[in-house]
Amino acid sequence: MLEARLEQASILKKVVDAIKDLVQDCNFDCNDSGIALQAMDNSHVALVSMMLKSDTFSPFRCDRNIALGINLNSFQKVLRCAQNEDILTLKADDSPDVVSLVFESSEQDRISEYDIKLMDIDQEHLGIPDTEYAATITMPSGEFQRICRDLSALSESVAIEAEKNAVKFVCNGDIGNGAISLRNHSSVEKPEQNVNIELSEPVALTFSLKYLVNFCKASGLSGSVKLCLSNEVPLLVEYELASNSYLRFYLAPKIGD
């Protein structure tokens, strides 16, 4: 059986809020290492990969591999019944028909119990190769969100160009063009504003802004975001969570004529 207790319901709330417009039904794969999810969007352009390691939970118990097939819209409805600071416990049998959620208020003596009906989801798992990326950019997640939002007003796509010490986001639209350049920036006083660009070779790739704007819904999960790029492979957008857990998005690049 599965029993996984989260100190703060907000983590799961934010994860589901961040991915539910991209994927609708997905399996939460539970085993002794934690709870994982991998799902493509309908058009097979983007892939979501979430890992909540067992250390994220306290306690965490899962004796067997259990796949919880959940409709994310339903999951969101139930998670909205939890306060952000509630303690959240997920429970399921070894061959479950439902997943149970218990929300406990730490301040009040209130316990809320919900069940969500599970579904059989035949999901393909893709093998994501280990990649040495040519460029890795770490920047404030809010900054990345703002860039994507701003440029999406002008164009459908953005070119991300990484070169020594600088990354440029460029778009060309019907009404005009836009470009935002960021340089390496590190401040002891405001480390949350740091930008770090690691580069082994210059990279330039074009991506759909619609998907990037969607990924940025995860900005509330982490103050910083990591963008990993190599020529002719999908972009990795990673939000790191506590205990080595993560929410990752992969986006296939646009292909030139």
Partner: peptide, 14 residues
């Protein structure tokens, strides 16, 4: 989708 790459062309099925 002309112009848009497919993620399955990069990550094979397991």
């Amino acid at each position: 989708r002309p112009g848009q790459g497919n993620i399955m062309n990069f990550f094979g099925k397991k």
